[in-house]
Design a protein around this nucleic acid. Structure first.
Length: 838
RNA sequence: GCCGGAGUGGCGGAAUGGCAGACGCAGAGGACUCAAAAUCCUCCGGUCGCAAGGCCGUGUAGGUUCGACUCCUAUCUCCGGCACCA
């Protein structure tokens, strides 16, 4: 007898699948489609079991759907642009492309070794001009529509490197390469995509995702977009000539309780206000301190509120009162207008600030529950809705009403207007890097900024850049790239030297899979219309916000360009847990990776796949345990031996219908009690495993059921005594098919051992026999003296005494009902009568 | 602080309101073996008991129910995300 040899078996089947091109699919409107996708990897380091868990889950889904008759698209590609390639190239004195392509080749080889059912013809690599050409094309469309624009913006700058740093290259405010060098903030012109233009839609359409996306991802996106409905109010300066200051508030109803107007330290009007004031010098020093300390990053969250009075006043347009203008470190320039009204009684932060600086704390809202707040009793801000008081003509109004009336009034009188503010900011896509998509824009002295014509796309990266990691951007240092003729006037001009954020690449890549090699358009609309939206997307929670938000944005832009008709690209999202070792996620930098290849060498891909599915439910984190893997390995060996033991008998047996066709077994067919028990067990298992695959994704529970079945068959050995060959065939075939999506290689091998022709390993998912799969449990309604005392689920044939015990009945007259029919009325006494109700 | 999730044996975990701890790991004992590995068999929440069996037990306290790991209320702890968002 041959031992289970995963190395041989896995290579054999991978070769056959490839030769038979079984995972290659085409759009076919006559068949129901299913698009299952795992997030594409960044090809660096080694593929570890964290990656493999992601792809295994996807592969199980793809294979189950295929077995259930869907036309399945299951592609894979590479998120191939990015900083690490550039750094590695500098370090190893090679080209980012060389480094990247080597990694891709390596990744691909390992993925193939795991037997994932990808259609490799659809493979994409985002660093290829045939792909990034379309990034540029989309960019130009956005530029035409005003969705791409340039503005000055702050970047991290290391004075020693004399270069821009990515956020990841800033370590606690210092340069990653120069630990003694504080990162500065510089303003330079950068490109932005107007995600804010879609803020409302991005928020609203989250409703479409409910049920299909994890609740917490939806919540994170909602918080990220951060919608606030309120009003902007203008406050005139008492000096009569400075420009009025505008604040944003969600609680205009509390404006009568305002005791200050507070500006962010970075507010553009601050300096103007301070000028000419007698404490000017002192205040400017304070302001400078405040601005610098606000650069001092993280600790600020818990920092104390600091502020100072500017000496200026504004007029409250509602009350006519003079209000002092302050500067406060807790006011954010990036949100709203960078100026807030300080209403201490009804805002926690304002309360804290006012208490510290002894500002007045007038109460203008009273709770609705009848309790009355007084200046003395007020220990913290009352921020809930209530009833307005001391608010001039608005006193007595409920908060909701006051909000409406007062913003209407502000609008009517022209000193304010209703406004909705979002936390979401436009997406800065400029990177001063080499290894990314060049932004297709040219600057001409005569014609200004000129878009590269579509016919000149792609703007290709120069082949031999000077990569030093120092100085200006690598593209800017490459004259043959920079110097170009103006498309309009033909005169000398300069190319844009920024490249795009790699999130651009991953925002629409899944559309390209539908038509990966189209050189006329990003994709064929009909093909996308067939395959989209993605039925199941699987990836880590780390991408819950950015990647998914940008993808949703891109989809809406493409829809408005008329390329597609749907509004959301992804119907269902699954966020799988991380694979950890020693309590932390596997990563190269942590040095705790279990390499996928190492795993395949030692136990084979099937064991690796099985273990990642079995060790924990897919949404939970999984602690890698070398000891536990043995269990999965042992199980596959056990199953293999079981099949091997009976293969010869089964091959000679005629099929009872076969798994390709619907299985036709029924309980009456069984001649022996042993057959009956085993057939029941296998069909019950099939029923529950089917359910787990289809709806719950409890792969670990499904595997446990299959193990249980295996144990039971094993315990029934020798099968040849009392189990006819055709029944053996049915047991072992169903067992094999249930394993097929999870451990496809060993399943294919066993399928062949059971006498099936080559090619049949793609057999349909079997249908369980309803009669056989029926639970042998029965539900019993217990009535005592006509009154329902409860329901009980018990195994068929439970002795009456046991029923009495389970129902916790005192001896009494009881009626047992099964499926709403009275089966037997008995007097419960000390006599034990076997009541069989099955 | 706000939002989301989770608390079950030594461990990973199972359980549509119906026998809590399936399945697996680790552990203990045994068979086979010169021996080991592999394999096979038995035991494996706590406690009382020679045993049959009893009692307790799903973070904590209540509640609903004939019946609660599961539903409700409160509370504690842990994990994740966001966080001076006006």
């Amino acid at each position: 007898m041959a031992e289970y040899n995963p190395r041989l078996i896995e290579a054999k089947w991978q070769k056959r699948w490839e030769e038979a091109r079984v995972f290659e699919t085409e759009a076919d409107p006559s068949k129901p489609k299913y698009y299952v996708l795992e997030m594409l990897p960044y090809p660096s380091g080694t593929l570890h079991m964290g990656h493999m868990r992601n792809y295994t889950i996807g592969d199980v889904v793809a294979r189950v759907k295929r077995m259930r008759g869907f036309n399945v698209i299951h592609p894979m590609g590479w998120d191939a642009f990015g900083l690490p390639a550039e750094n590695a190239a500098i370090k190893n004195n090679t080209h980012p492309r060389t480094w990247t392509n080597n990694n891709i080749a390596e990744f691909q080889r390992v993925l193939r070794r795991f037997g994932f059912s990808y259609d490799w013809r659809r493979e994409i690599s985002t660093c290829e001009p045939e792909y990034y050409k379309w990034n540029q094309w989309f960019f130009l469309r956005m530029l035409e529509r005003g969705l791409a624009y340039r503005k000055k913006s702050r970047v991290n700058w290391c004075p020693k490197c004399a270069t821009v740093l990515a956020n990841e290259q800033v370590v606690n405010g210092f340069c990653w390469r120069h630990e003694d060098t504080r990162v500065e903030s510089r303003e330079i012109e950068q490109w932005f995509l107007k995600t804010t233009a879609y803020a409302e839609q991005l928020l609203d359409d989250l409703k479409l995702l409910e049920g299909g996306w994890p609740e917490r991802v939806i919540t994170m996106q909602r918080n990220w977009i951060g919608k606030s409905v309120g009003a902007k109010v203008k406050f005139a300066n008492t000096d009569g000539h400075s420009a009025p200051i505008e604040v944003f508030t969600t609680r205009i109803d509390t404006i009568y309780g305002m005791s200050a107007l507070i500006l962010a330290p970075g507010h553009p009007q601050v300096e103007h206000l301070l000028k000419g004031w007698n404490h000017e010098k002192e205040l400017f020093t304070q302001l400078k301190d405040m601005r610098q300390s606000s650069v001092k990053v993280e600790e600020l969250e818990t920092a104390e509120k600091v502020g100072f009075f500017t000496g200026r006043h504004v007029v409250n347009p509602f009350s006519g009162m003079e209000i002092p203008v302050w500067v406060g470190n807790f006011v954010l320039m990036e949100y709203g207008t960078g100026a807030v009204m300080c209403v201490p009684a009804h805002d926690e932060r304002d309360f804290e600030f006012a208490t510290k600086y002894k500002l007045a704390i007038p109460i203008v809202v009273q709770p609705k529950d009848g309790t009355e707040l007084t200046d003395v009793s007020l220990k913290e801000a009352f921020t809930e809705y209530g009833k307005s008081v001391n608010s001039g003509p608005y006193s007595g109004l409920e908060t909701a009403e006051a909000l409406a009336k007062m913003s209407a009034e502000a609008e009517a009188k022209g000193f304010g207007k209703r406004e909705t503010v979002f936390r979401l900011k436009d997406w800065g896509i400029s990177r001063q890097r080499y290894w990314g998509t060049p932004i297709p824009v040219i600057y001409c002295d005569k014609d200004g900024m000129v878009a590269v014509p579509d016919t000149d796309l792609p703007v290709v990266l120069p082949a031999n850049p000077k990569l030093t990691g120092m100085g200006e951007s690598p593209l800017a240092a490459t004259p043959e790239f920079v110097n170009v003729k103006c498309p309009k006037c033909g005169g000398m001009a300069r190319r844009e030297t920024d490249t795009m954020d790699t999130f651009v690449d991953s925002s629409w890549y899944f559309y390209r899979y539908c038509d990966a090699h189209n050189d006329k358009t990003p994709y064929d609309a009909a093909k996308v219309a067939y395959w989209f939206p993605i039925d199941q997307y699987i990836g880590g929670i780390t991408h819950a916000i950015l990647h998914l938000l940008y993808s949703r944005f891109w989809c809406k832009v493409m829809r408005d360009l008329g390329l597609i008709t749907h509004s959301e690209p992804i119907s269902r999202l699954f966020t799988q847990g991380m694979v950890q070792k020693g309590g932390v996620a596997m990563s190269k930098s942590k040095g705790n990776v279990v390499g996928a290849e190492e795993m395949a060498e030692k136990y084979g891909a099937d064991t690796g796949r099985l273990y990642t599915l079995f060790a924990a439910p897919p949404e939970k984190d999984l602690e890698w345990s070398e000891e536990s893997i043995e269990g999965s390995w042992r199980f596959l060996n056990r199953v293999y031996r079981l099949i091997e033991r009976h293969a010869e008998t089964v091959r000679r047996a005629k099929s009872r219908g076969g798994a390709e066709a619907n299985l036709t077994a029924n309980a009456d067919d069984a001649v022996s009690a042993k057959e009956k028990v085993l057939l029941r067990k296998v069909h019950q298992t099939l029923r529950r495993v089917t359910q787990d695959f289809e709806t719950r994704w409890h792969f670990n529970a499904a595997i446990a059921l299959i193990m249980e079945l295996t144990n039971e068959i094993h315990a029934a050995e020798p099968l040849d005594e009392g189990v006819r060959p055709e029944v053996q065939r049915e047991l072992l075939e169903l067992l094999t098919l249930m394993l097929a999506p999870m451990t496809p290689h060993i399943a294919a091998e066993m399928w062949e051992m059971l006498g099936h022709e080559e090619g049949q390993w793609l057999a349909r998912w079997p249908v369980f026999d309803v009669e056989l799969a029926r639970e042998t449990e029965v539900e019993i309604v217990v009535q005592v003296n006509g009154r329902v005392r409860g329901k009980l689920k018990v195994p068929a044939g439970t002795p009456e005494a046991e029923l009495v015990r389970l129902a916790k009945l005192e001896p009494a007259v009881a009626t047992y009902l099964v499926n709403k029919r009275v089966v037997k009325t008995i007097v419960v006494a000390d006599k034990l009568v076997n009541l069989v109700v099955a």
